[in-house]
Computed example of a mutant assay.
Amino acid sequence: GISDGWGVAGAIASGADLVYMGTRFIPTLESMADPAYKQMLVDSTADDLVISAGITGTPASWLKPSLQANGLDPDDLPSAPARSYDSNQAIGAKKWRDVWAAGQGVGAIKAVESTAAVVNRLAVEYAAARQRFSAMPSF
C-alpha cells in the first residue's frame, strides 16, 4: 500500500532496498489506462476493494465499482476459474480489461495528474520524512 514518499521512507527505514508502486501511476496523464479507470482510482478508497481469485484464478484486489459495472456482485463472486494467461487470447476476452484492480494505497490518490507531478511530490515527501527521521534520537 505504498503511495507516497512517507511510505517509501518508512519502507527504507525498515530495511527495504526499494519499493514497488503500481496503482499510484495508473491515474497519470501518460498512462494508457482507460480514463474511467483513472477516475475510479481517484474516487476509491481501500473500502472499495475486494480480494478474490474469482476473476482470473489468481487472488487480486478488485475495485468493487468496476465489478458492479460489469454485472458482478462483489459479495458473491464466482469460484476461481482455472488460470489462463494465454498471450494469444484476443484482448476482448481478457477479463481484466474491463474489471479493474487496485492496490491498498488507492485512497491516497486524489487526482489524475502528470507522472512528473507524482514523482516530484514523492521526492518532497521522502525528503521531509528523512528529515524527520534524522531529528529522532537513535536507539
Rank of each mutant, 00 (worst) to 15 (best):
A101T: 10
Q131F: 02
R97W: 05
K64M: 10
G103L: 04
A69F: 00
G107M: 11
A128K: 10
G57M: 01
R121I: 11
A90R: 14
K95T: 13
G57L: 00
Q131P: 01
G105M: 08
F133A: 06
S61Q: 09
G105I: 10
I91P: 14
D76I: 02
L72G: 02
I109H: 14
Q68H: 05
P78A: 07
A108D: 15
G57R: 00
A127G: 03
S66E: 14
N70H: 14
T115V: 15
V119H: 04
L49C: 10
R132F: 07
G107T: 08
Q68I: 15
L77G: 07
Q104V: 07
I91M: 13
S114L: 06
S87G: 04
D98P: 00
D86G: 01
A129H: 10
Q68V: 14
S66C: 14
K95V: 15
D73V: 02
K95N: 04
N70K: 13
A129V: 10
I109P: 09
V119A: 13
V112A: 04
Q104K: 14
W62M: 09
L67Q: 09
D48V: 14
G92M: 12
L72F: 15
G107N: 08
G92H: 13
R130Q: 13
G103W: 01
A116M: 12
G57V: 01
A127F: 00
A111I: 06
W62N: 06
S52C: 08
Y126S: 06
L122W: 13
N88P: 00
G71H: 10
S114V: 06
A102I: 06
